[in-house]
């Protein structure tokens, strides 16, 4: 439905001048008004959506927060079954011997022939090199 044709038929138009083919011609002031109206409506619509999603997110967070609390209480009563592994001399606690072996193998591959000694293996506090490489690999195809 062409609102301009309807408006023209009714003898009143919202904005601009419509010719017999239904083409609308706008004066400068009317163009400015259309631009302001358009930007305002698009922003209002998306701001409204933004607010609704924010509120909705808070509600969902609150709902899932309750669930989490209930869940976190249960492990306290559970018996400790995890065995404490002996830390290897060079690696910090939490780095398993298999990880140490993998690191040693990787270093050996890079250095080639000859002996080497690993003095210390610690976790880096910043983004991990392997993590960065993995993320880079994953975003490259996009």
């Amino acid at each position: 439905m062409n609102v301009w044709k309807m408006a023209a038929a009714a003898g009143s138009q919202l904005i601009g001048t419509a010719d017999k083919n239904g083409d609308v011609w706008l004066e400068t002031g009317e163009v400015v008004m259309t631009v302001i109206t358009g930007i305002t409506i698009v922003f209002s619509m998306l701001v409204l959506l933004c607010l609704i999603i924010l509120i909705f997110g808070k509600i969902m967070d609150a709902a899932s927060g309750k669930g989490k609390k209930e869940k976190t209480e249960t492990p306290k009563t559970a018996p400790k079954t995890v065995k404490k592994e002996k830390p290897t001399p060079v690696a910090e606690e939490g780095v398993s011997p298999s990880v140490v072996a993998a690191i040693a193998a990787a270093i050996s591959c890079i250095l080639g022939k000859g002996k080497f000694t690993i003095r210390k293996i610690t976790r880096s506090s910043s983004r991990k090199a392997w993590g960065s490489t993995g993320a880079a690999e994953n975003v490259r195809p996009f």
């Binding site: 631009v35 930007i39 933004c50 607010l51 924010l54 997110g57």
Partner: peptide, 23 residues
């Protein structure tokens, strides 16, 4: 977008060119 709803404002701002070009 659901995780960061403020993104919607950027989605709205990037329609600016539509109306500038309309003018």
């Amino acid at each position: 977008l659901i995780s960061n709803p403020k993104s919607l404002l950027l989605g709205a701002a990037a329609q600016f060119g539509i109306f500038v070009t309309f003018a």
